[in-house]
Design a protein around this nucleic acid. Structure first.
Length: 439
DNA sequence: CACCGTCAAGTCGCA
DNA sequence: TGCGACTTGACGGTG
């Protein structure tokens, strides 16, 4: 029998290919993106939620979601949480609207993009969806809310690997009874909902131990949330990785890949508050040990942190870093001219891939408050895009806002507001898809 | 056009 | 007993 020679190099290539097929950790973000024009969801207040208004909003929101998905695909983001606000009042005022059939085409198209790109999406009913409530009316609304979320994914033609994440609910002074009530209410759920449901530890009532207990009794996969566990620990001595390994067992035999929620504490805020951005250094330390687990980031700067973490965990080429730099540059110039120059130098070597170094310089710079001088300098650079196009009224508005800012009587946000309106009006895509207006 | 109170959900903790 | 925090940005009315 003839055996082809397999060199070490070939073996490692084969290994890499296998890893790409079977081991592809995804990193994603939740609900909304910064610096993506046309991706904002709209809603209304209940008082004004007429049928017509709801239809109009749903149409707009589906279009916005498609913009977001296109953006995700283009940027290599393959894990995403769809906002519950997609269908405003989806479990109450819009419940009787036949939005599934009315928007069947858009929903199908969205689902097609998700499937063909290999993206995995989820939805996450919030803290007000309390399945284990003592009040049966509250529990009934929770069921309706879960049905609504499930219907969104169903209507997109997405399989049960696209999950619904839920907290256990309230304790009502008797945590064991509350957990038992969750299990029994779960048993009564529609199987379509059951197949998608995943449970998560929260930051004040149910720890990861509680959630794993419920999982053992009902057979529900578990999402471990690191910050919730830090704030509301099951056992302060037990390492996150041990919980994550235990949670891994809850996914075996079910459709879907294990996922965790990862966030970092905002140092200036209440325990459990999400940080403005993910610090890439600590993230990498955490991520390295994880193995084949998807990571949903919960962080204020959303897609920015997702792209940062993706770029720092795989080599996507210098061009990917240059794209990022083009988005960050005016936000950096606004705060730190030295960092601006340092990053430009860093990106000169086209053979290198200095992702970590670049993002650490970005983080350093964004930590600084803009000085009046540096902010004005950056604003002048941005004004350069419009100074030859702006009409007289626009020039006046720019000059007035700038003068007031430099005199100390006006805010920087007013100056940037003028620039942003110009950028929208003139369709200056380079600025619209950058982070200068968002950070 | 900038500003800010309000919204929508339910539980829990603290006066 | 009742109210504020939590979460979230955007709505929508005011000046």
């Amino acid at each position: 029998m003839h055996h082809p020679k397999i060199s070490g190099r070939n073996l490692s290539c084969i290994f890499t290919l296998l890893m790409m097929c079977y081991y592809s950790q995804m990193i994603g973000y939740a609900c909304l993106a910064l610096g993506v024009p046309g991706s904002n969801l709209k809603t209304t207040i209940l008082k004004h939620a007429t049928q017509e208004r709801l239809y109009a909003l749903i149409g707009l929101n589906l279009a916005a979601l498609e913009v977001l998905l296109d953006y995700n695909i283009k940027n290599g983001i393959r894990l995403f949480r769809i906002s519950s606000d997609l269908i405003p009042f989806g479990s109450s005022a819009a419940k009787s609207l036949p939005w599934r059939t009315h928007f069947a085409e858009a929903l199908g198209q969205i689902g097609g993009k998700i499937r063909s790109s290999g993206m995995r999406v989820s939805m996450h009913p919030g803290q007000y969806t309390v399945l284990n409530a003592l009040d049966p009316e509250v529990a009934k609304s929770a069921v309706l809310d879960l049905d609504y979320h499930c219907q969104v994914l169903d209507a997109m033609g997405l399989g049960p690997e696209h999950k619904l994440i839920l907290h256990l609910g309230g304790a009502y002074g008797d945590s064991d009874a509350a957990k038992a009530r969750f299990v029994s209410r779960w048993r009564d759920l529609n199987p379509a909902v059951q197949n998608r449901l995943v449970i998560e530890n929260d930051d004040r009532i149910f720890t990861i131990r509680d959630v794993l207990d419920v999982s053992l009794r009902a057979g529900i996969p578990v999402v471990f949330d690191n910050l919730h566990n830090a704030v509301n620990p099951a056992n302060p001595c037990q390492a996150d990785l041990d919980w994550i390994r235990e949670a891994a067992g809850t996914w075996k035999g079910y459709v879907g890949r294990q996922k965790i929620h990862y966030s970092q504490q905002d140092p200036g805020k209440r325990p459990g508050a999400h940080s403005p951005t993910i610090r890439v250094g600590p993230f990498l330390q955490y991520q390295e040990a994880l193995g084949d687990v998807d990571i949903m980031l919960e962080v204020k700067d959303k897609n920015l942190s997702a792209i940062k973490c993706i770029n720092c965990t795989s080599n996507r080429g210098i061009a990917a870093l240059e794209v990022e730099w083009s988005r960050y540059k005016y936000a950096i110039l606004e705060r730190d001219a030295n960092a601006y120059q340092a990053i430009r130098r860093l990106l000169k070597d086209k053979e290198a891939y200095p992702a970590l170094e670049m993002y650490q310089l970005v983080e350093q710079a964004l930590d600084k408050e803009p000085t009046a001088g540096s902010a004005a300098n950056a604003a002048q650079h941005v004004w350069g895009y419009f100074k030859d196009r702006a009409d007289k009224a626009e020039k006046r508005r720019w000059e007035a806002a700038m003068r007031r800012y430099q005199e100390g009587s006006g805010r920087l946000s007013a100056v940037k507001g003028v620039l942003q309106r110009l950028s929208m009006k003139y369709g200056e895509n380079y600025l619209n898809s950058g982070y200068y207006f968002a950070l």
